[in-house]
C-alpha cells in the first residue's frame, strides 16, 4: 500500500512536466487565439481588451502557475469555442470513450489471447499461420481502413449496425471491433511467442511428468508465466484507448475525448486542448501503474520488489 502511494506521488512531477510542455508548445506555435476567437475585422482596441480579459498579457510563468493552481482544484479553464468549463466537457465526453475502450479491449483480449494460445499450441501448423497472418493484418492495416471497411460492409451493405454512433451500445460494436482488432493482433503475437518460450522451460517438463493433461499444463502452468509481458501491453493499450481513440471516434462520430481533442486542435481552443492532454496523461499514467500492480499479482517474485 505504501508503495502504491509512493508511485502515485511519483506521478506529480510527470504531470507538472507534461503541463509545462504543452503550455509552452501551444504558445510557441504560430497563431493567436484572440484573433481566432474574433474572426476578421475587429479593432485593435477589442483585441487588447480581450487579451486582458483572457490574462494573455500576463507573463507566461504567471499564466502557468495560475493554470496549475486552478487545475489542482479541478478547474481547467473555459473552452474558447464552446464557452463552457473544460472539466465539464471532458467529463461529458469521457463515458463514451470509456464504453468504446472497454468494448474494444474486451474484444482485443478475448480474441488476442485465444488466438495466441491456439497458435502456440498448433505451432507451425495451419491454424498458427492463419492466426498469425490475421494478426499481422490487424497490426499493419491502419484503423481508418478497418473502420471504413466495416462501415461499408456491415452497415452500408448488410445494414446490420448503425453507420455512426447514436448513443446506443449496438452502435459502438463496429468502432470497438475496428479499434480492438488492431490491439488483438499484437496481443495474439505476444501471447504466442511468450507461450512458446515458456513451453520450453524445465517446469513444463515437470508438469508433464506429473501426468497432467496438455490443457492443464498450458492453462495452469504455462499461461500465467507467459502473460507478464502481455499484461503490460494490455494495460497500456487500455489506457491509450481510454485517452481517446482520435481516428475511430472521428469516423464513427462518437462524442468522446478523441473528438474533443480534434476539435480543440482545429479551433485552436487552448484551454480545451490543454485540458484533454492533461487528462490523457493522467489516464496513461494510471494505466502504467495498474500494469505494474498486476505484475506483482501474477508474479510472486516481483511482489516484494514493487
Amino acid at each position: 500500500m505504501k508503495r502504491v502511494l509512493g508511485r502515485i506521488a511519483g506521478m506529480i512531477p510527470v504531470l507538472l512536466g507534461v503541463t509545462l510542455l504543452i503550455f509552452i508548445l501551444l504558445r510557441v506555435v504560430p497563431g493567436d487565439p484572440v484573433s481566432i476567437l474574433l474572426g476578421e475585422h475587429y479593432s485593435q482596441e477589442t483585441i487588447d481588451r480581450l487579451t486582458r480579459v483572457m490574462d494573455l498579457d500576463k507573463p507566461l510563468i504567471q499564466q502557468f502557475f495560475s493554470y496549475v493552481g486552478n487545475a489542482v482544484r479541478g478547474n481547467l479553464g473555459e473552452s474558447y469555442t464552446m464557452k463552457r468549463p473544460v472539466t465539464t466537457l471532458i467529463l461529458q465526453a469521457f463515458p463514451s470513450t470509456v464504453k468504446l475502450a472497454l468494448m474494444a479491449a474486451a474484444i482485443a483480449w478475448v480474441i488476442g489471447i485465444l488466438a495466441g494460445i491456439i497458435a502456440a499450441v498448433r505451432q507451425n501448423k495451419l491454424l498458427d499461420h492463419l492466426f498469425m497472418g490475421m494478426s499481422l493484418a490487424g497490426v499493419s492495416v491502419p484503423i481508418f481502413m478497418t473502420s471504413l471497411f466495416l462501415q461499408y460492409v456491415l452497415s452500408f451493405k448488410l445494414k446490420l449496425f448503425p453507420l455512426t454512433s447514436d448513443g446506443r451500445l449496438i452502435s459502438l460494436i463496429l468502432p470497438a471491433i475496428a479499434l480492438g482488432w488492431n490491439s488483438a493482433g499484437s496481443i495474439a503475437r505476444m501471447t504466442r511467442s511468450g507461450l512458446i518460450d515458456v513451453m520450453q522451460q524445465d517446469y513444463i517438463d515437470t508438469a508433464k511428468a506429473k501426468g497432467l493433461t496438455k490443457a492443464s499444463v498450458i492453462l495452469k502452468h504455462a499461461l500465467k508465466n507467459s502473460m507478464l509481458p502481455v499484461v503490460t501491453m494490455m494495460a497500456i493499450q487500455l489506457s491509450s484507448m481510454m485517452s481517446g481513440a482520435v481516428i475511430t471516434e472521428s469516423i464513427f462520430s462518437i462524442p468522446g475525448i478523441g473528438r474533443l481533442a480534434t476539435s480543440a486542435i482545429q479551433n485552436r481552443d487552448m484551454p480545451l486542448l490543454q485540458g484533454t492532454v492533461l487528462f490523457t496523461t493522467i489516464i496513461v499514467i494510471i494505466g502504467n501503474l495498474a500494469a505494474d500492480l498486476l505484475y506483482s499479482v501474477l508474479d510472486p517474485r516481483i511482489r516484494r520488489a514493487v
Binding site: 524445465d202 501426468g211 517474485r301
Partner: peptide, 19 residues
C-alpha cells in the same frame, strides 16, 4: 506418469513453476 513412475530433474531452480 506421476503415479506409477515419477521423475525428478536436475535443476530444482527451474523445475518448479515460479508462479
Amino acid at each position: 506418469c506421476g503415479d506409477d513412475v515419477s521423475m525428478i530433474f536436475q535443476e530444482p531452480m527451474t523445475s518448479l513453476n515460479p508462479v
